[in-house]
Write a protein that binds this DNA or RNA. Structure first.
Length: 457
RNA sequence: GUGGUUGUAGUUCAGUUGGUUAGAACGCCUGAUUGUGGUUCAGGAGGUCGUGGGUUCGAGUCCCAUCUUCCACCCCA
């Protein structure tokens, strides 16, 4: 029974062309991570749900993919569980889930291996994660994250290093049309405090973050609805109206904060991060302090940052921040971490849109051996062996098909050379090497073929 | 989770107010060309019209459900 195959919603295949480009991005990021001293880590696709739930807020819990228990998953369920609905039923039939991000599994790893890891621990991790979101532009249910985190130190040198890496990665990708927005949860808390929204901090953040999307009026009216009074809005207005250089904005904000300890604290963290970044040799003109930057999962506690393209309509392509006590929920207190996450899929779309992928679309095979008959095919395998031993990527058409077919294969696959092997060649021990682009061809011994191809490399 | 949108050949898409046998381009296969690809020419194969119901003498076309695509919201990479 033939059935049309299909993919689960929000998932994709990556064909060879796409993989070349994806690998280009991933390799570039990986190189930079390594250069900054990060070590690789991988964790399972699945985690126990106890590890995942409660770490991403209510929204996040709903977006977790749950894996149904194997076997008779109903064996532990009775009628009462069923009657009480999914909240009661769910924990009895599913105990594992697909990972939602790389940070929480990393925290789990650090806790489980705390005696082995050397702090500060710097690790990078490039793996798919899954979210049961409704797919949309630049949003998939399976997508790759590309994280680098440093845990076990409070130093703001880490923040600066991560921001430096961001700039180095995009420089290597020849992508320049982006801005890094930075802020600090403590600065936001300070703002909430002076605006009288301290009690509603998380809702305050969510609303504030929408500023560039829905505009000031709507933000203000939403803030009013959570109890921010007119004086508070006026203060906020003056903060949002701040212009000029990063440092001068921060200085004015410090005056507005007055005695708000947490706010002052946040400001000095931002300043120190910027200072460290310039000591590392990076201009801070790509970085702008943005007091409306409030996003981030609920676990961020200190510096936060996100990168957006400026000339392409695209969401955040890189984001990160500091989380003071992520390992705390797993029983390891006092470990602070800070990380950054590159969204490969969105970077891909951005580079594609701006035509920034290198033109040299890598093709693997340098030469295709084209045998005319069974005897030539046997002969070609020995030549293939010599070519490969010489380090030349080469392949043979696996059946003695018509030359038209074999040359067509080389043509479509973009293999630049073919080596024709027929009875005449075997007799002479000289083979016809043809350059596909021009159609020029000549006969050489296998040694000369190898020399010629090596010169081409 | 809310609102909208999409689905016809391998791919991109036509298909009139419901009316005979559902078309095109590209791709694929064969031949022109028994030792020469990308060009050209000739011929050919390929479709349960997303799926399941319903209305009708008759459904690719209308209705309902469901899945899928894309977009916006919530939220997020």
């Amino acid at each position: 029974m033939a059935q049309k195959p299909s993919l689960p919603k929000g998932t994709r295949d990556f064909g060879p062309e796409q993989m070349f480009k994806r690998n280009y991005i991933i390799d570039t990021i990986k190189d930079v991570f390594r250069k900054y001293g990060f070590m690789p880590l991988e964790t399972p696709a699945m985690e126990n749900l106890s590890v995942l739930t409660g770490k991403y807020g209510d929204e996040g819990d709903q977006l977790l993919f749950r894996v149904l228990n194997s076997g008779d998953f109903l064996s532990k369920v009775n009628d009462d569980d069923y009657a009480e609905g999914y909240k009661s039923l769910s924990p009895k039939i599913t105990e594992k889930g697909l990972k939602y991000d790389l940070t929480v599994p990393f925290a789990r790893y650090v806790v489980m291996n705390q005696t082995e890891v050397t702090f500060p621990f710097k690790r990078y991790q490039i793996q798919p994660v899954w979210r049961a979101d409704r797919p949309q532009k630049g949003r998939y249910r399976e997508f790759y994250q590309c994280d680098a985190d440093i845990v076990g130190t409070n130093s703001l040198v880490c923040e600066a290093e991560l921001l430096a890496m961001v700039q180095e990665v995009y420089k290597k990708l020849t992508f320049d049309a982006y801005q890094i927005a930075i802020s600090n949860r403590k600065v936001l808390e300070g703002i909430a405090e002076v605006c009288g929204a301290k009690e509603e901090f998380s809702r305050f953040c969510v609303i504030l973050d929408k500023l560039d999307k829905i505009g000031k009026e709507k933000v203000f009216s939403e803030l009013e609805s959570i109890g921010v009074n007119e004086a508070g809005l006026k203060t906020l207005d003056s903060i949002l109206s701040l212009t000029g250089h990063n440092i001068s904005k921060l200085d004015v904000l410090a005056e507005i904060f007055g005695t708000s300890e947490i706010g002052q604290n946040g400001i000095s963290e931002v300043k120190e991060t910027l200072d460290n970044l310039s000591l590392l040799g990076f201009l801070t003109d790509k970085v702008s302090v943005d007091f409306t930057l409030a996003r981030g999962l609920s676990y961020y506690t200190g510096m936060i940052y996100e990168v957006k393209p400026t000339t392409v309509k695209m969401g955040t392509i890189t984001a990160g921040g500091r989380y003071d006590n992520l390992t705390g929920v797993f029983g390891l207190q006092g470990i602070s971490g800070v990380g950054v996450s590159f969204g490969i899929d969105r970077i891909y779309d951005t580079l594609e849109e701006l035509n920034l992928f290198p033109i040299s679309e890598a093709k693997y095979s340098k030469v295709l051996l084209v045998p005319f008959d069974e005897e030539a095919q046997r002969h070609s395998l020995q030549l293939l062996c010599q070519l490969r031993n010489a380090g030349i990527a080469s392949e043979v058409y696996p059946e003695p098909a018509k030359m038209k077919k074999q040359l067509g294969y080389a043509d479509k696959k973009g293999i630049p050379f073919v080596l024709l092997i027929g009875s005449e060649e075997i007799k002479q021990q000289r083979y016809t090497l043809k350059y596909m682009e021009t159609g020029n061809q000549d006969m050489f011994t296998i040694e000369d073929v190898i020399t010629n191809l090596q010169e081409e490399l």
